[in-house]
């Protein structure tokens, strides 16, 4: 059981990397979800040009792999005199990606509410803004927590791509231990187990939550 001794030795630095992975996930969610809501609103805006531009933005970011966006930001930003840290680069690139993906969920939620609610609110004398923010939006947001939590798990998994530009999250930590000990298999399997435990447990929680919401 020598590998267990190795694992015990490596665990602290992997957990430290896990902290970075979780922090990345939080930052990305904190920017990406509001961005998704904003994009959803723009994509159903009355002005045609606004709709077209926002839908084009969504389609482009949904059609391009996250890694391309990350590399574009990491190698491209310095070319246009914009210098930010690798961590910030991941947050920016990943938030744009998450914004585009989650906008579909927000949009479906808003469209699900139906025109009658808005009309009723307007006929009661609410301003268009109040009809939307106090009547339509609260109902729309009731349907989104389940899908958004699933997105959160996906975001956590794809923070591993930060490895490609050397942010010290869990995958990078595992890989650098591997390159020092030449025992890539063991340490990567350990990292994989940690990812799997977190993802499987949170997926179960999300499934239970969604089942509860439905009843």
């Amino acid at each position: 059981m020598t590998f267990l001794a190795d694992w015990a030795e490596w665990l602290p630095s992997l957990l430290q990397g896990l902290g970075t992975s979780l922090l990345l996930t939080l930052c990305v969610a904190g920017i990406g979800f509001p961005l998704g809501l904003g994009l959803a609103l723009l994509s159903i805006a009355p002005a045609r040009i606004v709709r077209i531009l926002s839908i084009a933005f969504i389609e482009i970011f949904r059609g391009i792999p996250l890694l391309v966006v990350i590399f574009f930001a990491y190698f491209g930003f310095p070319d246009i005199e914009l210098v930010i840290s690798a961590f910030a680069t991941i947050v920016v690139a990943h938030s744009l990606n998450l914004g585009a993906y989650s906008s579909e969920v927000f949009r479906a939620g808003i469209l699900h509410v139906g025109p009658g609610q808005r009309e009723a609110a307007r006929s009661l004398g609410l301003t268009p803004w109040h009809a939307f923010s106090r009547v339509v939006l609260p109902q729309a947001l009731r349907a989104v927590p389940g899908p958004l939590m699933s997105f959160l798990i996906m975001v956590f998994q794809s923070t591993s791509l930060a490895f490609a530009i050397g942010v010290g999250e869990m995958t990078s930590q595992a890989f650098s231990i591997g390159s020092m000990t030449f025992d890539y298999l063991s340490v990567l399997v350990l990292a994989g187990i940690i990812y799997a435990i977190i993802c499987v447990v949170s997926a179960r929680i999300v499934a239970r939550f969604e089942a509860k919401m439905r009843t």
Partner: peptide, 20 residues
């Protein structure tokens, strides 16, 4: 298990891990 581990980690396990 397969879905719980990120794609990149799978590829690293197969290429670098099993690669040895």
């Amino acid at each position: 298990i397969v879905r719980g581990i990120p794609t990149l980690v799978w590829l690293l396990i197969i290429f670098y891990g099993l690669g040895s």
